[in-house]
Every structure is written in C-alpha cells, then in structure tokens.
Amino acid sequence: MVPLSLLKTGDKVVVRSICGTGHLAKTLGQLGIIIGIELTIIQKAKESVIIRIGESRYALGPGAASMVLVEPQI
C-alpha cells in the first residue's frame, strides 16, 4: 500500500485505506473514493493528482492525495 501521491501518470490502482476520519475523509467518501474502488491516475504534478473514477474526474491536492492509500493493479 502506498499513498496516491507517490504513483505516476497512467497507473491503475485500488483504494485500500483512507487515513484519518475527519471531514476530509468523509468528503472523499462522498465523492466515491472508498475502499475497494478502482481508479486511474490521469495526471500527476508534484504531489497533486487528477484521478478518474468511472466517468468522474477529481483533482486532489497534496494533502488529500497522501491520505488515500492504494495498491497498484498489475
């Protein structure tokens, strides 16, 4: 498991854990970033990422991206 912020463009990953329980974690949950979901990283700029889940795209800043722990798909 690695934080989302450490992966590279084009990686497909599965969310394994979300650190923290505050508002931010809940916000992620409501956007569909939940444990077990598969997402694709479509852009990576420093520690910020843009991810795609189904047909939705979300931009996550460094703080949010490091909260999402994922496992790369092979």
Partner: peptide, 12 residues
C-alpha cells in the same frame, strides 16, 4: 494554520 486540502471535481 495550513489551508485545508484541495479536492475538486473536474467537469467534462
């Protein structure tokens, strides 16, 4: 304090 982390949906 730090600004809160950035999360935003990107429209099509």
């Amino acid at each position: 304090d730090e600004p809160s982390p950035f999360i935003m949906e990107l429209p099509p």
